[in-house]
């Protein structure tokens, strides 16, 4: 069923899950690039949404179902952002320098995430409690990005970008969980080069982004 390449990788001791995830990565980043260049959704760059998609996938692998990935992933995401914001507002009065301040924010976010997991366990949400450390760590590091954007561009933009990130993550996660795609990637691993090809086209795309049509709506009417 698998391509010779995948068979070989597995026979050398690389877990099949790992091979699949790595093959999915080019597709995921292509989707994020597409959202930026053609749709105009910025999110927190390409790195953060990609990591979050993989955190979602990891949660799915552990908790079981597709919906658990979205549910628990979103829960952790929202907690991290909310606690991060509150902590930052609280810390404002102390006038701390940037890195120590972010360090405190990350610490408190980490502790609250732990609290959430315990609560999840207490309320029989075992799926939540059993989420491994990898996706949680990824989500927590998101806070640094969030705080940085908050300082640079203000709260509104930061929250907006977080929502965009969440949106892209859910879409990307859905596509990455698509069994047909996974089967095809395992059967024809060279398909990742199609993603690269699409990236080249995206990289040469000079047309207006979809959201820019909305931003310049009045202008278009006036032309």
């Amino acid at each position: 069923m698998y391509s010779a390449f995948v068979e070989y990788a597995v026979s050398q001791g690389v877990p099949l899950g790992t091979v699949t995830l790595i093959l999915i990565l080019p597709v995921v980043v292509m989707i994020i690039a597409f959202f930026r260049q053609v749709v105009g959704i910025k999110a927190f760059g390409i790195y953060t949404p990609a990591l979050i998609i993989f955190a979602f996938l990891a949660i799915k692998a552990e908790a079981g179902s597709f919906w658990d990935g979205i549910r628990y992933g979103t829960a952790i995401f929202v907690t991290v952002i909310a606690v991060g914001t509150i902590t930052r507002i609280f810390l404002k009065q102390f006038r701390l320098l940037y890195l120590p301040r972010v360090a405190i924010v990350i610490s408190i976010v980490a502790l609250s995430t732990l609290l959430m997991l315990i609560l999840g366990g207490a309320y029989q949400r075992t799926g939540l409690a059993s989420v491994s450390i990898f996706p949680i760590l990824i989500m927590i590091t998101l806070v640094e990005k969030f705080v940085a954007v908050q300082i640079e561009k203000g709260k509104k933009v930061a929250i907006f970008l977080s929502l965009e990130t969440l949106f892209i993550s859910i879409v990307g996660y859905s596509i990455a969980s698509w069994s047909l795609l996974i089967i095809y990637l395992q059967r024809y691993p060279w398909l990742v080069f199609v993603a690269v090809l699409i990236n080249i086209l995206l990289g040469k795309w000079t047309g207006l982004r979809l959201l820019e049509f909305i931003r310049f709506k009045k202008l278009i009417k006036n032309v």
Binding site: K204, T206, G207, R209, F213, F216, I220, V223
Partner: peptide, 18 residues
């Protein structure tokens, strides 16, 4: 028509690339 009119506008993509 909207697409045609959009061609008079400078968007992020063409600003950066062109």
């Amino acid at each position: 028509e909207i697409y045609q009119k959009g061609k008079t506008i400078l968007g992020m993509n063409s600003r950066n690339l062109r």
